[in-house]
Amino acid sequence: MTKRIELEKIVIDKGDEIALANRRMIEEAGVLALNLIGSPGCGKTTLLEHTIAALANPADGSPPLRIGVIEGDVQTTLDRDRIRRAGAPAAQIETDGACRLDAAMVSRALTELDLDELDLLVIENVGNLICPTGPKLGEHLKIAVLSTPEGDEKPAKYPAVFALADAAVFTKIDLLPHLTYDLDRAAGDCRKINSRIRVFPLSSVTGDGMDDWTGYLRSARAGLVAEHEAPGRPAS
């Protein structure tokens, strides 16, 4: 006698469990984690170099924030070295061909960083606007990064990452005079796709728009700390 049995459905993302463990570990150290997703060359590492400097020496006298970075690239440690030169601890993941990071890779890289010495952890995903969209790494915030030379129709054409992101950073706005790029269209499409998304147009080169971005990071980090310290907070 044989019989057919239907088993329970299975969510396929082995990374989810590891991602949750990563996040718990990161959170216990009071660290806010970001997952930065954008095409090759859109300016992710440059944005980080300038964010590190801006948060280390806030112009408005607010307390400094310490950033640690996990760099994801197909190969080389070039970006890790740039971040170290910018004064922040950094670890490199070389994916050896893989088009995106996963939670297990991040878990291994985390052993190279001392979370107790950090306030923010930024994971710069492999340069790619599509593939890294799905896997959770253990981050609190997913940040889509898009540079103005890529074109203002990119949110409409590659909507998934914008649908799932907490914020979108539009980099290289200093180049706008040289481009036919409609910032309102790009931002408008982002908000159509995701009404809750925060949009930050900025230039790492001129510093335009950087204050709003660093302010966002500061308040997100403060929110996390407050949530953790609030006694008897309701389980959500």
Binding site: M1, T2, R4, I5, I12, D13, G134
Partner: peptide, 13 residues
Amino acid sequence: TVLVRQLIVVERN
């Protein structure tokens, strides 16, 4: 997500 919505196995009693 990606999920296995249905998985049917054969069991020999």
